[in-house]
């Protein structure tokens, strides 16, 4: 109960930050070059009268403070405006694309953790060994090869050369049947209706983009695990654990890992938020219908509402992820309380 109250307090405390984000993006979009009224008039030779009509229609003829107030009111009532490129409401568009991004990011994160934690631990248990150097090399490669290069390489090897992977065009083969829209997460939806063939198809589409992203974030996770594990393994209580006759494996897993995971948790939170918004390149390479490429397209088209909606969504996700990390931190470390 107390924990819930504290979480509520934390959410309340994040409202000013969110408000700041809204105002900031609003102003930013207004000072960026490009006039949406011109852009969305019927053609390049549209008359001034038509442009004025569009501008009036969009509310762009009013003073900026009034526009801001209207915008804030709309955000408060859950109306993020309408995208001029897709013709749909921004809420609808984001709701459709967020699951795609989340599914990809989560899978990539799980994959990255599955690789980074064992690698980091191995490197820390035997510092200076061949394993340590191999891990360092993998991490360096992961960081210095841009995602669009590694993504294209993976596509080339597994799709073009070996033909194991399906063609990199979105979440599902165009000819495959989509599952009913329950959660928006294809893997979950397919599993819910028991369509395992579809599940496999969706999973196959997911592997390459997820791997591309995982490789990119492998380095911070593995290096952090190694550093944190090294410092923990050098501490006094590890010596105590050895002095009571615990086996090496138990010392590393029970006494070492739980202490070493704390700084890694913080990094996970940061990595996750970054991946969600910044994987535009991966989304583009694999034609993934995610929110990153959606926002990029809108920005290029001077379409204000989706970009503002995207930034607001990312800010909200960031707040939620940080809160979740703090709660996990509180569970993992009794010295910390969710404040």
């Amino acid at each position: 109960m107390r924990v819930l109250r504290r979480i509520g307090g934390r959410l309340l405390a994040s409202l000013p930050a969110l408000l700041g984000v809204v105002v900031f993006t609003f102003l930013l979009m207004r000072v960026l070059p490009g006039d949406p009224a011109v852009f969305f008039s019927s053609g390049p030779n549209a008359g001034q009268a038509e442009i004025d009509a569009v501008r009036k229609d969009l509310g762009l003829d009013r003073p900026i403070p009034e526009q801001l107030l209207r915008y804030l009111y709309d955000v408060g009532t859950g109306n993020l405006g309408r995208s001029l490129t897709t013709g749909q409401t921004v809420v609808h568009d984001l709701g459709e694309r967020l699951p795609a991004s989340l599914e990809l990011t989560l899978c990539a994160l799980v994959l990255a953790l599955g690789l980074a934690l064992p690698l980091g631990i191995l490197a820390a248990v035997r510092p200076g060994s061949a394993i340590d150097h191999a891990v360092r090399m993998v991490c360096t490669l992961g960081v210095c090869v841009p995602t669009f290069v590694s993504g294209l390489l993976l596509v080339y090897v597994f799709y073009v050369q070996f033909g194991i992977a399906p063609d990199p065009t979105g979440r599902l083969d165009i000819f495959a049947a989509s599952p009913p829209d329950i959660t928006g997460f294809l893997l979950i939806d397919f599993a819910l209706v028991g369509d395992w063939e579809g599940w496999q198809a969706a999973a196959a589409q997911l592997v390459l983009p997820a791997l591309t992203m995982a490789l990119f974030v492998l380095a911070p996770l593995a290096r952090m695990t190694r550093a944190s594990m090294l410092s923990v393994l050098g501490s006094d209580f590890i010596r105590t654990a050895r002095s009571i006759g615990l086996s090496r494996w138990r010392v590393v897993a029970v006494y070492g890992l739980r202490n070493a995971i704390l700084p890694v948790l913080t990094i996970i939170g940061i990595v996750f938020s970054t991946m969600l918004g910044a994987n535009v390149l991966v989304e583009k390479v694999f034609s993934w219908p995610g929110i990153g490429s959606y926002a990029l397209d809108a920005l290029l088209a001077s379409d204000y509402a989706p970009v503002q909606g995207f930034v607001l969504l990312m800010a909200a996700v960031f707040v939620m992820v940080n809160l979740l990390i703090d709660v996990l931190y509180g569970i993992a470390d009794p010295r910390v309380s969710v404040a």
Partner: peptide, 28 residues
Amino acid sequence: GQGALNELRGAAMSIVFQNPRTALNPIR
């Protein structure tokens, strides 16, 4: 070897360390 020592350590022979605070696992 470490395996045989592990049988003895904590049972037949044991040690009390300096700096009691850091010698205990902080989150257990």
